[in-house]
């Protein structure tokens, strides 16, 4: 879906992005992770041409991004930023309708789409359609921001630290929301953050950036288990790596089928860290596991966690 081919960008003689190559396949949730100033936002902004690249080529859906007008390209790509940037003089519904109206969708289709998106983001259309941005909380604003980015059903979503400015509880809720939306719509997402926890929670693939280059890309598990160099090792943290491993592996990895145990069951896709937490709280070393339909199919044990 996205291919970056030896892309570079300099600001005033300083190389912010240095011959960077990255391919993101359709349907992936790729997190670009790195410290502040490593060039990750610049990469994102080069993909929708808010920043021109100095060298290299970028293709979106197989098309070179310089082959079509910047506005046409941007209308095909959802873009969410940390400060949201809702239009303060337009109510929620007009904000969401921005791109569909630019694309001259028929009125009825736009109206229907606004309702769909508000529901997708769990905002009651009856309450929120006519509200103005300053009447919303930070979390609600970012929900509208995401709805607006999804409005014209873009194949690709670029998100630049979208949840960095909201409180931790709201952030968790928004992360769950975007994970759910990614699963149900199968959009390709390129998500920039400096927050390792967030990356581990959301990514199907993580690309770690430092000083304008990608230092390691892979599944979250690979990054934690086999850091490519000292920078990655430092970034993911020496201490607590075991806990992070538990956070990226799921109960399904350690399931003992057929056995049973007492107490509330965990879901198959719950992280092992949740199993450990439940064991600690319940003073037990066995927790039952249920599948998507709520059938108890086995257990996970303490010995299996540390295996």
């Amino acid at each position: 879906m996205i291919e970056l081919d030896r892309v570079s960008k300099s600001y005033g003689g300083r190389r912010v992005v240095d011959a960077l190559s990255l391919a993101v396949a359709a349907g992936e949730f790729c997190v670009l992770l790195g410290p502040s100033g490593c060039g990750k936002s610049t990469v994102l902004r080069m993909i929708n041409r808010l920043v021109p690249c100095d060298a290299g080529a970028i293709r979106v859906g197989g098309t070179d991004i310089t082959a079509i007008p910047a506005e046409t390209l941007r209308r095909r790509i959802g873009y969410v930023i940390q400060s949201v940037g809702l239009f303060p003089h337009w109510p929620v519904e007009d904000n969401i309708a921005t791109v569909p109206r630019l694309l001259k969708w028929p009125r009825q289709r736009v109206e229907r789409r606004i309702g769909e998106l508000l529901e997708l983001l769990r905002l009651d259309p009856a309450i929120y359609r006519g509200k103005y941005p300053h009447q919303l909380s930070g979390g609600e604003q970012q929900r509208v921001g995401v709805a607006r980015a999804l409005a014209a059903d873009p194949e690709l979503l670029l998100m630049d630290e979208p949840f960095a400015a909201v409180d931790p509880v709201t952030r968790l809720a928004l992360q769950q929301e975007i994970a759910r939306i990614h699963k149900s719509t199968n959009k390709t997402v390129l998500f920039v953050t400096h927050d390792l926890e967030e990356a581990l929670r959301l990514a199907t693939r993580i690309a770690i950036m430092n000083e304008g280059r990608i230092v390691q890309a892979g599944r979250p598990l690979d990054i934690i288990e086999r850091p490519a160099n000292d920078f990655v090792r430092d970034f993911v943290g020496h201490q607590g790596r075991g806990l992070r491993l538990l956070a990226v592996r799921t109960v399904a990895d350690r399931l003992r089928r057929g056995e049973s145990a007492e107490g509330e069951a965990l879901a198959l896709d719950a992280p092992l860290s949740e199993a450990l937490s439940a064991m600690t709280m319940r003073h037990t070393d066995r927790i039952p596991v249920e599948d998507g339909e709520g059938r108890r199919i086995g257990v996970v044990t303490l010995a299996d966690l540390v295996r």
Partner: peptide, 23 residues
């Protein structure tokens, strides 16, 4: 006009003239 609003407008594909007139 907040920088974020300008950036969001450009990022969504409003042309410079549309940004001026509508935002």
């Amino acid at each position: 006009v907040p920088q974020a609003v300008r950036e969001a407008a450009a990022g969504m594909g409003l042309s410079p003239f549309q940004i001026l007139r509508q935002v």
